[in-house]
């Protein structure tokens, strides 16, 4: 019968329209600025730098090895390495970045910097409302804007951060055990030099 297909189609539309009042599957949209969908854990957009402790300048995990700068496909990371070394959170002397810029207008959120970082220092953020009128000033993130605490990291990616924390703790425990052993060996054979500071105390 001519028109049968059209009638069938209209029934389907009517069913969807009425169903959207009762069935969650049929109405999946939310009214965005007022309502928000729950955060999906793996979500990523732009990188940030993790620091331990409360002082971001002292606790920055980045040791300025510049691997991410070299591997970044669109070359949006710019690092200047320090001339001197500063103790990191475990007390070990490390280089630190004097400049760490990310041009997020160039960044394509591929997270290759995160993958290649051997120090778990750079991670992906979830903050997306970052529009700016200034292409060079507003979208160039400096070190102080990039630094985010480990607690923040734990908040946005709990599973991933827990795994990273566990791995780091294990590594630090190993280093500490090694240092203790060395110290004990030194104590057994009296030496004139002081025991090494590295990894001994927090």
């Amino acid at each position: 019968m001519l028109g049968e297909g059209i009638l069938k189609g209209l029934t389907e539309t009517a069913r969807n329209f009425l169903g959207s009042y009762v069935n969650k599957d049929r109405l999946t949209t939310v009214q965005f600025p007022e309502e928000r969908l729950p955060q999906i854990e793996a979500t990523r957009d732009f990188p940030f730098l993790v620091y331990d402790g409360s002082d971001w300048q002292a606790g920055l995990r980045c040791v300025s090895c510049q691997i991410c700068e070299k591997e970044c496909p669109p070359k949006c990371i710019y690092i200047e390495k320090s001339k001197d070394k500063k103790p990191d959170v475990t007390g070990k002397l490390q280089f630190y970045p004097t400049t760490f810029d990310i041009d997020i207008s160039v960044c394509m959120s591929c997270q290759i910097c995160v993958e290649v970082c051997p120090f778990d220092a750079i991670k992906m953020n979830v903050e997306f409302e970052m529009s700016s009128e200034d292409r060079f000033g507003g979208l160039l993130l400096r070190k102080e804007q990039l630094a985010k605490s480990n607690e923040y990291y734990n908040k946005i990616h709990p599973t991933e951060a827990a795994a990273v924390d566990a791995a780091l703790a294990e590594e630090r425990a190993k280093v500490e055990a090694k240092a203790r052993q060395a110290a004990e060996a030194k104590a057994a054979t009296p030496a004139p030099v002081a025991a090494p500071v590295a990894g001994e105390t927090k």
Partner: peptide
């Protein structure tokens, strides 16, 4: 064109 994070050739 000015680029804040220039590398290599650029």
């Amino acid at each position: 064109e000015y680029e804040p994070t220039a590398h290599d050739e650029v």
